[in-house]
Amino acid sequence: MALFGGLHPLGAIPASIVFGLLIVGAYMMQRAVQVPAYIILAIQGLIILAIVTSSVFISKKSMKAKVLAKLKKFTGGKDAV
């Protein structure tokens, strides 16, 4: 979860909101159309796997600089990492 939020305390807030939404949606889905809530566990696993893997591609210098600049803008000029 921490990695999902871009290793930043503020990033953890939207990250946990997304995962919370997924869980709530899963139970709603289970009640409404009888899709097992377990599917969300699998999807969360896939999301985390994708995020973890993506760091490899971000580690290229130009990409990293771009992402850091975006984060800096998002957090109001403070150093993001």
């Binding site: 990695l3 097992p36 377990y38 599917i39 969300i40 566990l41 699998a42 999807i43 969360q44 696993g45 896939l46 985390i48 796997l49 973890v52 893997t53 760091s55 490899v56």
Partner: peptide
């Protein structure tokens, strides 16, 4: 070359989710 601990936990969630579903 991803972070191994986190990938392992994600695989745990994936496995649990798939098996349970």
């Amino acid at each position: 070359k991803a972070e191994q601990g986190i990938a392992g936990i994600a695989l745990y969630m994936l496995g649990w989710g798939i098996a349970g579903m």
